[in-house]
Each structure stands twice: as C-alpha cells, then as structure tokens.
Simulated assay, not measured.
Amino acid sequence: MYSFTLIPGTVFDAEGGPAGEPYTPGKAYSSTRHGRFVIGSVGPHTSPGRWPFSVVPWGADIRLDAKGYVEVFMQGKWQHLHTLPAWRDTYAKDPAGARSALESRYKDLQRSTKSLFKVAKLPGQWENALPAKWVFNDFGQVSIKYFVDYNGNRRLDATAKAGRKKEEILSDFLHTTTDFELVALMNRELKRKETMPLGQSHGCVHMIPNVMQDWVKKGILKVGATLQIHEYAVSLVPRGFDKPEGSVGQEIHFFPGAKKIALYNVAKK
C-alpha cells in the first residue's frame, strides 16, 4: 500500500476532454483516458497533417520571400508554407492564399488578446501582419506524451516480450493552447497577470503555459515520471489517500472531474 500526500501550492487548473465520451480512434472528442502512465517524451509536437497550424513547430522562424510568400525555417532549411502537409492540398497552387490564411489566423489571435488585455495595440512586432516566430501550433511550445508501462521498467520499449502488450505513446497528452501561449507572452511583455479559460480538449489535457514550462524546468514533467489520471467521478482534489499502486517519490495527478492537476508525495506504508 502507498500513501499519497498533496504538496501544498501545487494545485493548478487543467482541463481534459468531455465526460462520458469513451475513447474511439478517429473520434473528434473523447474523454481523457484514466489510469497510471509513465511519461515517454517531452518536447515540441508537430502534426503530420490533421492539424494544419501544427505541422510547424512552435517558435520556428517566419519570413516572406521575394514574391511575398510565407516561408518557415524547419528541419534545418527554409520551406514554403504552401508546400507543407495539410497546406499543399489547398494552397499548392495558391501560395498567396496560404499567406492570407495565416494572416487571418493571426488577426483572430491579436483580436482576442487585445480584448483580454483591454489594449488598442499589442507591443512591438506583435502588431505586425505576421509575427517573426510561429506561434500557431495548436499544442503550444512543448507537449508531454505518455504510455502504459506494461512491464514496469519505466521505459518505452520498442518491442514487446512474448505474452506482453506493446508499449505505445497514447494519443492523449499534456499540452497548452495557442491562445493561452500568446497571453503568457503578452503577460511577460506587458508585465501583467491575465488569465483565460483553458477550454475543453479533444481528449488531451490542457495546462497553463507558465505551469507547464515551470514544471519542465524543475524536472517534474520529465521522461520516466509517473502520471496518474483519475476518473471523472472524482470532483475534488483530495489532500491525501492510500492506493495499492504507487511509486515512491513524487507523482503528477490529473483530476478531469475537478479540472485540476497537482503533485503528490508518495511513500510506501
């Protein structure tokens, strides 16, 4: 048996998918799957094509070529936006249209950010038609991906031993949102402390950007760390509890029913 004790000051807002929507591959919205998991990777997320604004990693440089077409620097080279997956299907022969679509998305971000901060203009280059860096990735700066550790070695194994299930990264993971990431950037530039709703996810876990970045820097969100996702029926974050499963040290616990994520100290009884 293991004893779990809530670490004071570590409870933060977080939001999962809708309750009562069992996971089905390809389904638009699903409940965040509960269980005990191990973090398998920490880093930028790029999508192969389902999420157009996420085919480019957060922070990639942006520029316009001599014809005014958008280029992004990724994989060690400049690439035209209209040639990338999920963009070329629509804009392969319309690079100006790709630029227009990106500028339209940025105007939406600018508009919502100005409304939250109650300002007529954003500071510096943020008021331009396009930013200098890619701030459009739907999953934010970094994503935390996890898996079911079937053999208990806390590593994501490439192959499974006979009689064991193969360990695979889940399609649910921890990440931030584009809008909240821009709000966090403006907070630093404007020396403000504005916040916004995290919003229901498609099944992943939405986190506050500053909290995620802080936990990554402190080594809380790291490869090999334990993540417990509770059932939706748990509507409050308990100060402590006992469970037959645990890992001595510190664990990350997400409560989708309470819309909170927290840290617990774990000791063996």
Rank of each mutant, 00 (worst) to 15 (best):
R36F: 14
R33Q: 13
I208F: 00
E189H: 14
S30Y: 00
G140T: 08
S41E: 15
S115K: 14
H230M: 13
F4L: 10
G246W: 00
W134H: 07
V42F: 06
S171F: 02
K67R: 13
K218Q: 15
S47W: 09
S30I: 01
E167S: 06
S143A: 15
W126H: 09
E189V: 02
L227H: 05
T113P: 09
T178E: 14
S112Q: 09
K269F: 04
A162C: 01
V148K: 13
T176H: 10
R154L: 15
G9E: 10
T176I: 11
V205P: 09
F4D: 05
A92F: 14
K260M: 08
V183R: 00
Q79D: 02
V248Y: 04
R88I: 02
D149E: 05
Y150I: 04
G249H: 11
L84N: 08
H82Q: 06
G163A: 03
M1N: 01
Y91W: 06
S100T: 15
E71P: 06
P209K: 03
K27A: 13
A96L: 11
E245D: 14
K161H: 11
I144N: 07
D157R: 01
K259I: 01
S31F: 07
F139C: 01
N153M: 10
S3M: 04
A101V: 09
T177M: 01
Y264C: 03
Q213F: 05
R88V: 08
W126E: 05
L64R: 12
V248F: 02
F73S: 01
Y146R: 05
M186I: 14
K166N: 09
V72I: 13
D13M: 03
G152K: 03
G257F: 03
F147P: 03
K133T: 11
N151V: 02
V266Y: 09
G199P: 04
R105V: 05
G224T: 07
F139A: 04
Q75V: 06
P52H: 00
T195M: 03
S31L: 06
R50E: 14
D138T: 12
R111I: 04
G224A: 00
R192I: 02
G199F: 09
Y150T: 06
R105N: 10
A66W: 02
A101G: 10
R111Q: 13
H34F: 12
I7H: 06
G246M: 07
F255M: 03
Q250M: 12
P22K: 10
T90G: 08
K67G: 10
S104Y: 13
H45L: 12
S201W: 00
S247D: 13
S115Q: 15
K217F: 09
L263V: 04
M196D: 04
D94F: 05
K268T: 07
K121H: 14
M74H: 00
W134Y: 07
D242Y: 10
K218H: 12
P25V: 07
A233E: 15
K67F: 12
F53H: 08
K260G: 04
A184S: 15
V42N: 05
S247E: 15
